[in-house]
C-alpha cells in the first residue's frame, strides 16, 4: 500500500466517522432497539419446533433463503450509506456485497441472539438449533449458533456492531476487486475509527484482536454456507431454480 492508503484521522474525524456509520447501522437495522425491547423473547413451543422439523428439506431451505434475502436488502442499504462506498466503482460495490452481506447478517445476529437459551430470532419467535434440523446441515447450524454465542460474549455496543460490520463489509482482500487501494483506504479508516471507539469505551486491548478473529470465523461460516448450498443444489436443482428468491441466487448461487 502507499501513503494514501494509511489515513491519519484526528479524534474529531474518528468520532464523526463513527457517528455516521452508527447512524447508517441504526437506520438500516431490521429490528429497532425499541422493537427488540418490546419483543417477548418467546421461544417456539415443542409442537411448533416439530412443525419446522417435519417440513420437507427444500421447503425449509426456501424459508431460510427468503429470510436471508430480506436481511440482505437491509445490508445493501447500510452499505450505500457508508461514507465512500458509493464512490467505489460498481464492480467493487457488487464484489463487496456478494462476499460480505451474509457476514454482516451474522454480525447483526448478535442483536437478536439469546445467549442464555441459545436461541435466535427467526420467523416470529426465538428458535433453538433443533428448529433447523430439516435443513440437513447440522454442522452449519451449530457453527452459526457457536458464532452467535461467541460474538454475544463480547457484549458489543450498537456503535461497535456498526463499525465492525462496516469493517467486515469493506474487506480489501476480496477476490475480483478492481480498485483494491480505494477499498483498503476505506477499511483502514473504519478500523481506525473502531479502534478509537473501543478505546473510548474503555475496552480491553485484546478486543480488536478478538474481532479480527471473528472476521476470519465469518469467512469460514460463509464458506460452509456455500458448500451446503452447493450440495443441496446438486440434489434439488429445480427447488433452487424455481423456489429461491432471485436475489439469493444472484448472491450465492451464481
Amino acid at each position: 500500500s502507499n501513503g494514501d492508503a494509511s489515513p491519519t484521522l484526528t479524534l474529531a474525524e474518528h468520532d464523526h466517522l463513527a457517528q455516521i456509520i452508527c447512524k447508517s447501522h441504526l437506520e438500516t437495522c431490521q429490528y429497532l432497539r425499541e422493537e427488540l425491547q418490546e419483543m417477548s423473547w418467546q421461544s417456539f413451543l415443542q409442537e411448533e419446533v416439530e412443525k419446522y422439523q417435519n417440513k420437507p428439506q427444500e421447503a425449509m431451505w426456501q424459508l431460510c433463503a427468503v429470510k436471508i434475502t430480506d436481511a440482505v436488502q437491509y445490508v445493501v442499504e447500510f452499505a450505500k450509506r457508508i461514507d465512500g462506498f458509493m464512490d467505489l466503482c460498481q464492480n467493487d460495490q457488487i464484489v463487496l456485497l456478494k462476499a460480505g452481506s451474509l457476514e454482516v447478517i451474522f454480525v447483526r445476529m448478535c442483536r437478536v441472539f439469546d445467549s442464555q437459551n441459545n436461541t435466535v430470532y427467526f420467523d416470529g419467535k426465538f428458535a433453538s438449533p433443533d428448529v433447523f434440523k430439516s435443513l440437513g446441515c447440522d454442522d452449519l447450524i451449530s457453527s452459526v449458533f457457536d458464532f452467535g454465542q461467541s460474538i454475544c460474549s463480547l457484549q458489543l455496543t450498537e456503535e461497535e456492531i456498526a463499525l465492525f460490520s462496516a469493517f467486515v463489509l469493506l474487506s480489501a482482500d476480496r477476490s475480483w476487486l478492481r480498485e483494491k487501494l480505494q477499498v483498503e483506504k476505506l477499511q483502514r479508516k473504519t478500523e481506525s475509527a473502531l479502534q478509537h471507539i473501543l478505546q473510548k469505551n474503555h475496552r480491553d486491548d485484546g478486543v480488536l484482536e478478538k474481532l479480527r478473529c471473528k472476521a476470519s470465523a465469518l469467512r469460514a461460516l460463509c464458506g460452509l454456507h456455500s458448500e451446503k448450498l452447493a450440495a443441496f443444489r446438486t440434489v434439488y436443482p429445480d427447488a433452487v431454480r424455481t423456489l429461491f428468491p432471485p436475489l439469493y441466487k444472484e448472491l450465492f448461487a451464481a
Partner: peptide, 20 residues
Amino acid sequence: KEKHKILHRLLQNSTSPVEL
C-alpha cells in the same frame, strides 16, 4: 451488470426498503 441485475438495481435505487 446482467448477472447481478437485482443487486445493481438495489444499488441504484434512491428509495430504501427501510424508508418504504
